[in-house]
């Protein structure tokens, strides 16, 4: 197992190298000029050109790529073209809100969606099943930003129960931190809940048909025990896989949610950097997201062995 983990972690290096090459090349060919954005609308062509030279944007592709890779090898993601701050610092400033949003969403989504899916499978064909499936369709169909605006309007502006926007760091207390995350987490989690609930229901339906479930019933096991101890554990592998895949959904959804609720996270940082063509920031954030995604997949793979002892690496 240990050797497997080490192998997998080492395997991230070529993956990251490919991502780095891909991101850098895409940005190189993509239209956009940070020098023109820095100079502003009224700058003359000469001003823009001089700024481009001072930023080194007139250097050839290979020279720029080589310099960037060399810096990365030293753990330096570069300096933002616009803010003049190290990319690492900018990521550090923004990582807590995004991490908080994702963790709260994940906990909220799993703790709601899994029981929903289990109940839907248990009561298949009844109004409860239909209600869960109806919610799932709704969750898939309504965009995150619409859910976000509706929640903000009702619970923040009309009822004044929760903050309408912003983020309070965890260091300032759990309650204000959590308060700021409730609405964004529900908005972001709506798609995620729908996805997990559907997969849980489908997998549970299959498992509940198995012989060992019939045996458990014959032995007189209670319904909760059958559902959560016997069936759910055996249905866990596909559910965990979907939860893992869904992390990518969360990363994408966080960009929109952070905008709607003015949360200063990595999603917003990415959008701002793309709009301005702040290449070092885009490259740094995409590399980070890729690394996180590779790690999440590793964790999911390791969790398989926990739920299904037959799986060995």
């Amino acid at each position: 197992m240990f050797a497997y983990v080490v192998r997998r972690i080492l395997a991230t290096i070529p993956v990251m190298a490919v991502v780095a090459l891909f991101v850098f090349s895409l940005l190189y060919v993509a239209p956009g000029d940070p020098a023109a954005v820095i100079a502003g609308d009224q700058a003359t062509p000469d001003d823009v050109e001089r700024i481009r030279q001072s930023l080194g944007l007139d250097r050839p592709y290979l020279v720029r790529f080589g310099a960037w890779v060399f810096d990365i090898m030293r753990g330096d993601l570069g300096v933002s073209i616009f803010t003049n701050l190290p990319v690492v610092t900018m990521i550090q400033q923004r990582i807590e809100p995004t991490l908080s949003l994702m963790v709260v969403t994940l906990i909220l989504a799993v703790s709601i969606a899994v029981p929903m899916g289990v109940v839907a499978a248990w009561k298949v064909g009844t109004w409860m099943d239909r209600a869960v499936m109806g919610f799932a369709v709704l969750g898939f169909s309504v965009p995150v930003f619409v859910v976000g605006y509706l929640l903000a309007y009702v619970f923040a502006l009309e009822l004044d129960w929760l903050p309408v926007q912003g983020y309070t760091p965890f260091s300032q207390g759990f309650v204000p931190w959590f308060e700021n995350l409730i609405l964004p987490a529900i908005a972001l989690g709506s798609v995620y809940i729908a996805l997990i609930a559907r997969i849980t229901r489908a997998t549970m339906l299959e498992v509940l048909q198995q012989d060992y479930i019939r045996t458990a019933r014959a032995k007189g096991a209670g319904q909760p025990s059958i559902l959560f101890l016997h069936a759910l554990k055996n249905a866990a592998v596909p559910i965990v896989t979907v939860i893992g895949i869904g992390i990518a959904l969360l990363i994408g959804g966080a960009v929109v949610t952070e905008s709607v609720f003015a949360i200063p996270g990595l999603g917003r940082l990415t959008v701002d950097a793309i709009l301005r063509r702040d290449y070092p920031v885009i490259q740094g954030v995409v590399l980070l997201f890729s690394f996180v995604y590779v790690l999440v997949n590793l964790v999911i793979d390791l969790l398989y062995t926990l739920f299904d002892p037959r799986i060995r690496y």
């Binding site: 926007q165 709607v260 917003r268």
Partner: peptide, 18 residues
């Protein structure tokens, strides 16, 4: 200065007194 690129969020923040 609080940066709010989303105009709906800025509008809501002003109305809520944030």
């Amino acid at each position: 200065w609080h940066i709010m690129p989303d105009t709906a969020a800025a509008s809501a923040a002003l109305q809520a007194g944030d």
